[in-house]
Amino acid sequence: MTEARGEVFDLGYRSYDGPREGRGRAYKALWVNGVRTTLGIGRGWGAKIMPGLLFFFVVILALGFVIGGEDHSSYYSAISIILLLFAAIVAPELLCPDRRDRVIGLYLVRPLTVTDYVAARWLAFLSVTLPLVLAGQVVLFVGGTLGAPEPLEYLRDNWRDVPRFLLAGLVIAVYTTTLPLAVSAFTPRRAYAAALVVGVFFISLAVVGILTSEQAVGGGDCEVVIMDGEEVSNTCAEYLVGDAARWYGLLSFGEVPSFVNGHIFTETPDQGAPKAVHELHAAIPIAWYALLTCALGLALWWRYRRIDL
């Protein structure tokens, strides 16, 4: 019987002479890390709950729309609140820990620029939000087609909805990515960033709701004249659809993509700020969306340009 013998080798240090893929690899590594962080891959179950719930929600809601015979244009308005909540909670994960733990300093001494870092994180979050928002629309379209008595006829009549929901999905995903990331750039604490995003959304929604409500405006100079139980004159309603209410509607920051959504689907939203804003010239909400998104993106980039390492 031979005796087993072990041998210990001191391999020492081996220098690396393999490929170096530079900036492209660095960018890709940050992007992959960002996607994994957003989806909770490689982390505990707690981190997977939010993306899992959101995916479940968008699919269930889309099936509800299929059963209820709803169309594509109102779908994004229906998911915008839950999507923004998801973004408010998860997006700070991509930026805040890097600054709080000061890992950012290690990234920026590698073959990366500040712009690369910000762009990779932004793209990583967009890579999750865009498929999520489009998933529901795809379910809705496929469900509508399969559920139609004449599927081919349904396709022929509704194919224009496909480029519309792709474009509208991109609009909502870009905004939902940029807003929470820009806010996260100004605090190292995830909870503060999430609270600020949710706060901006709900406070602006409430303020705009008050400013554009008939009751609120009715407290001023307007009056409602009722004769024989019927409303014959309502200056409040006239005021509501006047310029002020339309412009106030633009301040509902959480609904900015919905303003554009109505114009993409060429349908008038049925309530709230999107309805008021829709009565403005189409160029105004579109320009407002573009301006806000670019301003938020620039704020995000500017904050990292000036980061103290």
């Binding site: 690396y16 393999g18 490929p19 170096r20 893929e21 530079g22 900036r23 690899r25 660095a26 890709k28 590594a29 940050l30 890390n33 490689g42 290690l106 990234y107 590698r110 073959p111 990366l112």
Partner: peptide, 17 residues
């Protein structure tokens, strides 16, 4: 292990390396 692998990639090394 995760952290070092990630930092090596951010330095430009392919994942296997």
């Amino acid at each position: 292990s995760e952290f070092l692998t990630h930092m090596a990639q951010v330095s430009g090394l392919p994942p296997v390396h």
